[in-house]
Design a protein around this nucleic acid. Structure first.
Lengths: 191, 191
DNA sequence: AAGCTAAACGGAAGCATACTCCGCTTTTCA
DNA sequence: TGAAAAGCGGAGTATGCTTCCGTTTAGCTT
């Protein structure tokens, strides 16, 4: 069972198509055309729509693939920051990176929500590593006494995400908002 | 021009259909069936789909009508709270009401985002009075020295909305988060 | 009460768009 | 070089929103 029959090298044209599709989709999403049609993406990539579906199971899979790279970078930066800074500062800087990530994602949020299964399925698939990173950074802060322990870390991230997503294009404002949230989450601070 | 020819009374069956449609749509959205079909709503209301479109221009118009009532209540409560409490407390309580409002809306958020034109058009139409209420409450706080003046009030609301929307069904957590945000937004607090 | 008129009704047809299917082409490897 | 596997394209299918229009019905008038 599962014997590897020959292990052929992947075809070059297939890889080319895949990259062209990713590039076309990325540029379309970045341009804010969240409701772009699948065949439009295919023809911009210079391939037929059948080819698109050969490489990506459905719209949501394409979206996920487009943002997989950036997400991986974001996740990978967490341990680096944790090693280089004090816990609270690491968390703060990582949340700033998250804002940048969310900003590139912003225009495609409607797409995210639109996909069948809603935000849940996609967020879970694509978001698990992000949640993990956030929780590690936060618990380090709690251990260091720099943050209260009765706050769901994800709520902080959701709040920042909410500011990014719904706001216009003002990442600066979202960055400032990180400090507001962190200030409110310090031990011994109450309204 | 614009002479009132006769001014007939609106037909009773028309009003009945409209109410039946609103009730059917409301219960469907509340039940979390965000992807319910238009003809399903019509038949639940006991009318044809043509009748639905006679009363509501499109899906987004129907959604907006369903939530118009609750939104109006929320907006109307702002001046009441402002008269009854100190500025910061009024703001705090109003944001709590907003959480309840957003929670009822939560299941239909995908619908909101789905509608053509995206969140923008609907949010603007339906959200302007909310923005106005929030800004009044906030500026009272700033005047009273209870809040910094360099914060976009809408960012606070967006953050809370983000927590509500993306989080599961834990309005309690969102309410707690209001206090975190307000704590971080007090004058003289920095991380 | 009967008739007139405009409003409201119903649902079949029209249209848009995500996704599938399959015969044809290209690439890899022996 | 030839066989077979992988990839390609785009017409076809399915689904669901919206429109269109002939029919019905409520409100007004006489």
């Amino acid at each position: 069972m599962t014997d590897t029959p020959k292990a052929r090298r992947p075809r070059s044209d297939g890889q080319r198509s895949r990259l062209a599709l990713l590039a076309a989709a990325r540029s379309a999403f970045m341009a804010g055309e969240s409701d772009i049609r699948m065949d439009a993406i295919a023809s911009r990539a210079g391939v037929g729509v059948g080819t698109l579906y050969r490489h990506f199971a459905d719209r949501s899979a394409l979206i996920e693939a487009v943002y997989a790279d950036e997400r991986d970078q974001l996740v990978a930066s967490a341990p680096v920051l944790a090693a280089r800074h004090k816990p609270l500062e690491a968390l703060r800087q990582w949340m700033q990176l998250f804002v940048a990530y969310a900003a590139t994602k912003k225009m495609m949020t409607p797409v995210l929500e639109t996909v069948t299964g809603g935000a849940a399925s996609l967020h879970e698939r694509s978001g698990a590593p992000i949640i993990d990173a956030m929780q590690r950074l936060t618990s380090a802060c709690v251990t260091a006494g720099a943050l209260r322990d009765d706050i769901d870390p994800m709520d902080m991230l959701r709040a920042v995400y909410g500011v990014c997503t719904i706001a216009g294009d003002r990442p600066q404002q979202a960055v400032q908002f990180i400090d507001i949230v962190l200030a409110g989450a310090r031990p011994g601070v109450t309204p």
